[in-house]
Computed example of a mutant assay.
Amino acid sequence: MDKINLNEILQIEDLLNVKIRFNLMFRDNWNPIDDFKNGNLEVMLEGHYHNYPNKRSYKVGQVTIAFVKIHPKENYWLLFHIGKVTKDLNVYNGIGYEYEALKEYEKYFGRLIIRFKNRSQMMIRNAASVIDDCEVSQLLPDTFDNDLFPGYDKVNISWIELKRVIEKDTWKTALENQKGVYLLTDISNGKQYVGSAYGESMILGRWRFYIRNGHGGNIGLTPINFIHVQENFRFSILDIYKSTTDDLIIIARENWWKQILQSRRFGYNEN
């Protein structure tokens, strides 16, 4: 199958007036793909139209193409914006421009994925010099979403991520059919909480409570401010068991993990 480059899809005639920004990381090393999945497009556009401390990124009238890297170790990028610079705000080390989105390309936003290896340290490239190397990988039928359940041993997500994925079909199916022992980690201080799930909807049911109130009715967690939980807690799974497993086995395993991790002495477990 012949490769398709980016401009075979976009059909931009004046490439000399186009710049492509490959958005890796900005805002305290936060990966902008997380902002895309959380719907924070405004934050992403602030990064895209950001000027360096001593260098302008664009000129008035230029077309800008915005890609975000899907995974830090892979060369796949998601298109999230194409716009035209309408005003230079003369701001350095901040948002430097006013712009308008080009509506004729909106049908590709969040759907077009390219493969491109940026061999330069520069994030902003002249389109004419790189567009032939931007190989179209996929044109998704709907907006990008890579939130498939990764496997029980690979779950390690923040509260914000959990809120986003917990009602997705693959996550619901995986979590509502397994009893288990799970771990909450407070990244602000390293304290941990070991919990078990064997009631209605199993792990799914327990984790839904953390989304609702942050503490799930657990004595050791109730004093913690809900905002603190949202900003600092991560969720992972230590053990999983079939739904037919005796609850006493789950409880025994929960106690074993509490001893191993010393979560009663140094963490949030109080029993």
Rank of each mutant, 00 (worst) to 15 (best):
G180H: 07
K3D: 07
Q138G: 01
T86W: 01
S137W: 01
R164G: 02
Q178H: 15
Y92E: 05
G205P: 03
E13T: 15
Q11S: 08
W77I: 11
L79A: 06
F209L: 12
I157Q: 04
D28P: 00
A174S: 13
L89Y: 09
N118L: 09
F235K: 07
I224R: 05
E167I: 00
R212A: 13
A127G: 07
N75M: 06
Y152Q: 07
K55E: 13
T222R: 15
S236W: 01
I166D: 01
K163Y: 08
I224T: 11
E104C: 02
S120D: 15
E8N: 12
I260Q: 15
Q259C: 06
V91Q: 06
V18Q: 05
I124C: 03
I211E: 00
K73F: 14
I260N: 11
S243M: 09
F22M: 12
F233I: 11
D147C: 06
N146H: 03
R111C: 01
E161K: 13
R265G: 04
L102V: 08
I9P: 04
A101V: 12
I211S: 02
L16R: 12
K73A: 11
F226N: 07
V181Q: 07
V130P: 03
E270K: 15
M122V: 03
K179A: 07
S137T: 11
I250R: 00
D145C: 09
K59C: 08
Q62P: 04
E100N: 13
E46R: 15
V43I: 14
T170V: 09
N156R: 03
A101Q: 10
W77M: 05
N54W: 00
D147V: 01
L248A: 11
N40S: 03
L204M: 05
Y49R: 05
N90E: 10
R212W: 01
K19V: 07
K107S: 06
T244H: 10
K107V: 08
L204P: 01
S196D: 10
L41R: 10
I187A: 03
G83Q: 06
D88Q: 10
N146Q: 04
Y182G: 07
R253K: 14
A197N: 06
L24R: 14
S243C: 00
Y58H: 13
D246M: 06
D247I: 09
